[in-house]
């Protein structure tokens, strides 16, 4: 949608700001009426994603390996800015990708770990045992993913770690009422 020589944005000036109406080139370029009985545009994309999903198990293991490496670095070097950010970044990836890859409870546990790392101002106060519990729980959930009743066990594990997270952060556990628990430490 590069600016065209022929279609300049319309600018209206006001006391403290301008309002700029940009010509909608994308609509002219790419939007059309659907033909009669035209297939749903999502079908092919969902089918392609479904075919890709055969690889999600190994992708999850790849991402867990990075989390494990980050945990090892924390054990070897302590919770420095570098190791803390690496741990946060890998946990945050698992939080974001777990559900997409079919491992929603991994996402849930990773969320607990992210919250404690992010909202504990003094890194020295983050218990290493809690980090270990979360990482071990994620490993177990991935390993036992295909076993019968694994989902229930994973959900219980995730719930317990969520409660522990709330205790560590000193807030009332109430999953229906999420609260803002302080200034963020933006991830790098």
């Amino acid at each position: 949608m590069a600016e065209s020589k022929h279609e300049k944005p319309g600018i209206t000036k006001y006391a403290d700001h301008d309002v700029i109406v940009v010509p909608n080139r994308l609509k002219k370029k790419a939007l059309r009426r659907a033909a009669m009985n035209e297939p749903d545009p999502l079908t092919d994309a969902e089918r392609a994603l479904d075919e890709l999903s055969a690889q999600f198990g190994s992708w999850m293991e790849d991402e867990f390996r990075e989390l494990e490496e980050a945990r090892q670095s924390v054990h070897q070097q302590g919770l420095t800015d570098v190791t803390r950010q690496a741990l946060f970044r890998t946990a945050h990836d698992l939080k974001g990708h777990g559900t997409t890859f079919g491992y929603p409870m991994v996402a849930d546990v990773a969320d607990s770990l992210c919250r404690v790392i992010e909202h504990t101002a003094d890194a020295a106060r983050i218990p290493l045992t809690f980090i270990d519990q979360c990482v071990d729980a994620i490993r177990a959930i991935i390993r036992e993913h295909d076993i019968e009743n694994a989902e229930e066990v994973a959900a219980e594990l995730a719930r317990e770690l969520r409660v522990l997270t709330e205790e560590l952060l000193g807030i009332d556990p109430n999953p229906d009422d999420p609260v803002d628990i302080g200034p963020p430490l933006a991830p790098v």
Partner: peptide
């Protein structure tokens, strides 16, 4: 927000194409 799906991504793109908002330029 993750997790993403075909539908959620498609909806964002559709909104962008059909329903662009004007721009605001201020200090």
């Amino acid at each position: 927000a993750k997790p993403i799906s075909a539908k959620s991504l498609y909806q964002r793109i559709l909104n962008i194409v059909i329903n662009p908002r004007p721009f605001i330029k201020s200090k």
